[in-house]
Design a protein around this nucleic acid. Sequence first.
DNA 1: CCTTAGGACATACCGCCGGTACGTACTCGT
DNA 2: ACGAGTACGTACCGGCGGTATGTCCTAAGG
Lengths: 200, 200
Amino acid sequence: MAMMRSRRADYSESTKQALVDSATDLFTKNGYAATSLDAIVKRARVTKGALYHHFSGKQALFEAAFNQVETRAMAQLSKAIDSAGSPWERALDGVQEYIRVCLDPAYQRLVIREAPVVMGIERWREAEEHFSFGIVRSVLERLIEAGEIGDVPVEVTARMMFASLSAGAQIIADASDPKKASAEVFTALIHMIEGIRRDR
Amino acid sequence: MAMMRSRRADYSESTKQALVDSATDLFTKNGYAATSLDAIVKRARVTKGALYHHFSGKQALFEAAFNQVETRAMAQLSKAIDSAGSPWERALDGVQEYIRVCLDPAYQRLVIREAPVVMGIERWREAEEHFSFGIVRSVLERLIEAGEIGDVPVEVTARMMFASLSAGAQIIADASDPKKASAEVFTALIHMIEGIRRDR
DNA sequence: CCTTAGGACATACCGCCGGTACGTACTCGT
DNA sequence: ACGAGTACGTACCGGCGGTATGTCCTAAGG
């Protein structure tokens, strides 16, 4: 008979999750440096003992929050892309959806802004490889395979597109007129993409 | 008779400069959070008393370092652009020179990566307006005035180009083969720029 | 059923670091 | 010459990340 998961293990997982959620909230609102562990555990209604039982420290807690935000973002993004269509349509859908992903304050703050300085740029790149950036690049690779665009240097183009996308999203995020900002960002992006599109 | 600058004032300015230089070095190497004030004043061969006499705190010291790095970068950049030529040539020169600016580790780390989280994104934008980003945008505006490119949304396009540029520079900065990376970044950039170039 | 080993926390405490308070020497104008 | 203000140095405080240790509870073994 399959080993049943104990009630106690459920509780444990629950408090761990509460810690991650609390950390995500506070890091998003006030940033990593300005958020104390005391504030995090208070919000999660536990003590530092619990925190250090589940995580090795503040950094590890941040990475857990980072991974959760990234995982959700990736799910949202790949769902939008997987819904068939030509490679070109998929790319445009992907752009649109990634902008939406970036509009999440948690994604903006944790993944884009804080992660490179908190985790270190090296670990950040490594992590992004498995998440959002990986998707962006794979979409770009599909476009090349399909002959939609010339053979640009994939890695470099993907990274710069990635940067443009998050920058665009940030513009939208703190624009006074989001509708107008979105429209402008999209036209700018389309222009850029047209630049790498194969002449026909 | 013109008031002569006292020797003591010279000393004062010198120690202030030493603090800024020390801070720039250490922040560049280890980042803001991992750099203690004790380490900074030790390297500058003064005490915290001197530091807090000249600056209101760690943040203010960071901003002083930021401003110095930015000022030098701006000088380097505008010198390259001012050397005549058509708006289009000036733009390409500017791109090339800005990449060079971004290759400075201090610029990369302080201005691009740390500043948004240390100073807060709002103050960072405000500062960039007077520095590098201001130049990028003015170059773009010249291109539009000269009719070289269609009327894209200036602010948005400039920001996204700015992001692409710094991303490209970062790729070059930590590439195993900088020559090759530079070439790839440039072709990618040219493609993007061609995308907004007016059809003719 | 009793024992016991270990997981899941809570509590108390330490050391570092940013910031403050205060003291002191030197200099500059009068 | 002398008060005043500048340019520091010294001593100390509080908060925060991290650690060490204790306690309770549960689940597995005899």
